[in-house]
Amino acid sequence: MLKFLKQVVDYGKETAQAAKYIGQGLAVTFDHMQRRPITVQYPYEKLIPSERFRGRIHFEFDKCISCEVCVRVCPINLPVVDYEYDKATKKKKLNSYSIDFGVCIFCGNCVEYCPTNCLSMTEEYELATFERHELNFDNVALGRLPTKVTDDPMVTALRTLAYLPKDVMEPHDLPAGSQRAKSN
């Protein structure tokens, strides 16, 4: 009998605890309701990518020496380096260079290892196309520079959290010339 009563009491306690936790959860949800939304209204507002952002890869045709290091360090040997050996100058002559961004994982190994720094990361991330083959960028497309978000008159550029002044969480309506918080 006593054992049964103890079971009942334990069950009651568990129930009360569960109810308490649900109440706490509701309090958290309710608390979130009065916080300011962190929404970035995307096509009209855009976040400024950080300086180490790994976006679409930029390629400088004239710097390339066709060494194929980028192909070797790539996890899937993605860059296509088309060159011929020029016997007169005893140098490789690059015909074309392409990277398929539908397959690229933006790991940045090619940029890291390129001996002449002809590869670099840009801040472009809007790569949507109507067909996946359009993502196969040749050396002309790779050589284009993206428009900066801050230069686009249609877009309100917003800073990401790390670039906001101290104790500011809200990128909208920053005073002009406000500096980012110093890292210690």
């Binding site: 309701m33 300011r36 939304p37 929404t39």
Partner: peptide, 10 residues
């Protein structure tokens, strides 16, 4: 609206 508010959306 309430779902959005609870998730800090608009």
């Amino acid at each position: 609206k309430i779902s959005a508010a609870a998730q800090q959306r608009i």
